[in-house]
Every structure is written in structure tokens, then in C-alpha cells.
Design a protein around this nucleic acid. Structure first.
Lengths: 260, 260
DNA sequence: AAAACTACTTGAGTTAAGTCAAGTTTTTAA
DNA sequence: TTAAAAACTTGACTTAACTCAAGTAGTTTT
């Protein structure tokens, strides 16, 4: 149901009319630096709206020619890379308002693949036009730098998780992080639907599926969370943060040291 | 001895004269996109040269006001973040010509600390001035985007390593990666000196010191490498790449898909 | 040059998380 | 609506890497 709410919000504008950044309910998130109205109008003019992706469809594949970055409007995506021996490593999940494809900037080809976890709509921002536009708009330029540096900071936190945290800390961190991201988007930080499978959670967190499943079970037995399939309810947020070895400060890691 | 060569190369210009990007032997690496001569001159004018850092000194600490990014001229640095319970996670090592501090862009404070592993000299690039200059120089702007996106790609590879690779694959990947970086700088890819301790290698790779030590021993017993303290000689590069589950393509990951 | 410290190595025993297997639930397709 | 497939859970067993401990080598300091 969270999911349907996301969709509703994201798809408030169809392809024919009102597909405008200025009236988009997500614009304050995907462009947190306030661009002035004229700037937004200009950005708007280069954005292409695309038909929704069905679950399992690729937005782009590792090796495809890099042409655009994307903002998620509704639904969700995963990024993953392939190892030589063919198994995948998920490097990120993307929720509405988040930018996808920044790690391909200045590349000939996308270094990762992006696949829809559910029905997903995106705004396509052709990079050549974004670059040209950012030549004129210093605020827009700063905005892109800001997004990339935020992703760098998140990556470092992910390395910390993969290098130092145990299974319970990893899963708790993951849930706390998702919770914070839903909250920012105006949804309940306590009750939400996981758009990804247990397998994908394990893959992302460097754990076996069975371990993820066991940790979920343990977390339920201590009344910290309640899980029903993909529906998650956080019963004891404080305990979750303690297990994750996080504080409110860390949860907002992406923003904690942001300028302005 | 590798080290002394690096220093010699990096310190070819002292603080009084010839401290110029244009004549710096590293400029083709730290600014791979060819700026034209006037642009280099302008960049040059904003760069501050600093007194060398001694081993163990901080270039900046997590939480310090973000003011500059740095290019390593000689020596080496590590980046690390602190967990709540006080132990460190190394997120990167930096060799000459590499940029330090990009993940702080658009932040009030540095999100990580940077500490010298040995006597180290850096070029300081005040960010406010870099930003102002990049308003005028599209090539410089592209260059910064390029560096950040390269770091993003490297981070994803690091996640893959931490999530999927076993101890031997991690150490082999680490050595192969260092080897490639030395090679790019004009040094032997086969014989080099590790600027970091076994402890730091373990910390970075998500392994206990003892495990790193044991893997080094095993690699020596199969004649793949020869180690004497911090001196490393790669005897069988092909085998090293095989163990690392890498190919020549991956080794150049940072560059493999670069435009132009 | 010796002392004190830190870094590194090696062995022995432990353990957290992985693998394998089997059963259950949910989702998808017919 | 049912059948088939995929996703999830739980238990039993295994193992790669960790921890602890003790010794060796290398660096600083005095």
C-alpha cells in the first residue's frame, strides 16, 4: 500500500500535460537546492518523460552507451555490477526522487546496470543537454556536485558496514536507512513495504539469504520490528538504531554536513 | 626506494620557484583532461603549496570545515571514518597525483579524515576559488566531474570486494590495483614499497591483520609474489590477476570507460 | 648500543555466518 | 482456479576467518 501511495504521488502528472518539474511533488527532493523559477523552467525543457518500466526491465545495462542520468518518479530500481564469474553485486537501491546513473558521468558506457524492482517511472535527463545547461546555471552545477558527493559519502558508509558490521547490525542499518528515506519523502518511517526480495537484501548487505531471514526472525522475537512478507513495521526505533550502531546524526548522513 | 623515487619526482619543484602545474611531472595524471596552457595557468594561480606533512600528521580531520581539495605530490595518505564505538575504517589510500577530499564537496565539514602514511606533500586547491574558476573553464569542470565519478566507480568495486571476495581474492585485488597505480605513475608495476602497514591493509580490506599476514605467506609459497617487509615483488602477474578474479580490463576500471 | 615499543608472523582453538537440505508460503502463469 | 515456480523460512552441519596467545623482527627513543 505504501507502494500504491508512491505511485499515486509520482504519477500525478501524465505524459501529455503537467509533466513539469515546477509542479512535481518530488522536485524539492530531487533538486534540493532551490533553483529559481526560470532555472527550473529551463531544466524542465530538457527532461524527457518515458513510458513506465515493468518489473524486471532494465533502465540501462552495464556497458550501454552513457547518455542520460535519471530521476526516479515512482517505483524503485536496483543498481548492480557483474563479477567475472557471473554473479551480481547490488550497489544501490533507488527510491523516488533519487538520481540514477551519476557514476557513469564522463564515461562512454554505464559502469553498472539499473533494473526496475517494480513498475517504475523515471525522468530522463540527457547528459549532453544537462552539461550544456549547467554551463549557464551555476546552481544546477552545484546541485550535481552535491548529489555526487552525497553518493560518495554513502558509499564510504557502505564500506564501513561491509567491513566492520555483523549481520544484525547490517540489517538494522539497512532498515533504519530505508525508514529515513521514506520519511523524507513524506511517508511513514515506521511502516513501509520493501520493494526488494530477501535475496536482494542479502546480496546488497553481503549476507546469505538465510542469514537475512534469520535476522528478521530474531528482530521480530525481540519486538523490535514486525514483518509480514514485504511489509515492515518498526516497533522500537530506538533499539533499531542502537543495534545498527547509528544515531540520528548518522541516519541523516547524506545531509548532516550539507552546506546551507 | 620506490618511495625516494616518488619523492624525487614529486618534489622537483620547491616552494620558491617552478612550483607550477605546467612544469609539474604529475600534471598529466592529476589533470588527465588536457587543459590548454592559459587554463593551466589560471588553475596554477589558485593552488597553494604547503609544507610537507610528517608521517602520522593529519591533512584534515572528519568534522573540520571543508575548505579545499588536495592533490598528492609525493608520499601517500589514508582516508578513514570513525564508527560510533571509536574504531576506524579506512576508505581509501592516496598516491601521488590523486585527488583527496572530493567527498566533502558541497559539505560544511569533511566527512572523513586524511592522515599521512609517510612524509607527504600536497597541492592545496581552495574549493571556493576552484568553483569560481570552474565557472569560467568548462574543461576544468568536466575534469572534476570525471574525478568524482571515477571515485564512485572505484567505490562500487570496493563494495563488490567486501561483499563477495574471500581473503585471498581481496589481497590479490589490492596488490594488483596498487601495481596498476604505480605503473601509471611511471614506476615498476612489479616491484614497489607498500606505504601502509599490514594492519591498515587489513582494516581497508575488511580482514584481520593475521589473515593478511597468512595470505602474504601463502602467496609467497606459491611463488606468486616475494615479500620482504614492505617491499613487494610480483613474480607471477597473470596468476595474481587470476586469484583476484580480475582481468586487464578491470585493472583499468577507473579508465576503461572514460570518454575520449 | 641497549631498551622499549610497535609491527609482523605463526599456531591453536572458536565462532559467526555460510552451505545444504527440506518444508512452507507467496507469486505468477496457465 | 489450479498448477508451477519462485521466494522465504528453519534446522543441521561445515568452514573461512576471527580471536587469543606467544614469539620474532624491525623501529624508535634514550
Amino acid at each position: 500500500m505504501i507502494n500504491s501511495r508512491l505511485q499515486k504521488k509520482g504519477s500525478c502528472q501524465n505524459l501529455n500535460k503537467e509533466t513539469r518539474c515546477m509542479t512535481c511533488s518530488l522536485s524539492s527532493l530531487c533538486l534540493p537546492l532551490s533553483l529559481n523559477l526560470e532555472d527550473i523552467d529551463q531544466l524542465d525543457s530538457i527532461i524527457k518523460r518515458r513510458q513506465p518500466l515493468k518489473k524486471g526491465e532494465h533502465l540501462f545495462r552495464q556497458g550501454n552507451a552513457f547518455e542520460s542520468v535519471y530521476a526516479v518518479r515512482s517505483g524503485s530500481l536496483k543498481n548492480y555490477i557483474m563479477t567475472n564469474d557471473g554473479d551480481e553485486q547490488i550497489t544501490n537501491f533507488h527510491l523516488p526522487s533519487e538520481l540514477v546513473g551519476l557514476d557513469g558521468i564522463d564515461c562512454i558506457a554505464y559502469p553498472v546496470s539499473a533494473k526496475a524492482l517494480e513498475t517504475t517511472t523515471v525522468c530522463e535527463i540527457p547528459y549532453s543537454r544537462l552539461q550544456a545547461l549547467s554551463n549557464q546555471l551555476p546552481d544546477l552545477r552545484r546541485q550535481i556536485f552535491s548529489c555526487m558527493s552525497k553518493e560518495l559519502r554513502e558509499d564510504k558508509q557502505m564500506m564501513l558496514l561491509l567491513s566492520k558490521k555483523n549481520a544484525e547490525q547490517r540489517v538494522a542499518t539497512f532498515l533504519a536507512n530505508l525508514s529515513a528515506r521514506f520519511k523524507r519523502r513524506g511517508y511513514s518511517p515506521y511502516t513501509f513495504r520493501l520493494p526488494m526480495s530477501r535475496n536482494e537484501i542479502g546480496n546488497y548487505l553481503g549476507l546469505a539469504v538465510e542469514t537475512v531471514s534469520r535476522v528478521f526472525t530474531r528482530f521480530q522475537s525481540t519486538q523490535m520490528i514486525a514483518v509480514n512478507g514485504k511489509e515492515v513495521h518498526i516497533t522500537d526505533r530506538q533499539q533499531l538504531l542502537e543495534v545498527a550502531d547509528l544515531n540520528d546524526y548518522d541516519i541523516e548522513i547524506g545531509n548532516k554536513v550539507l552546506a546551507q
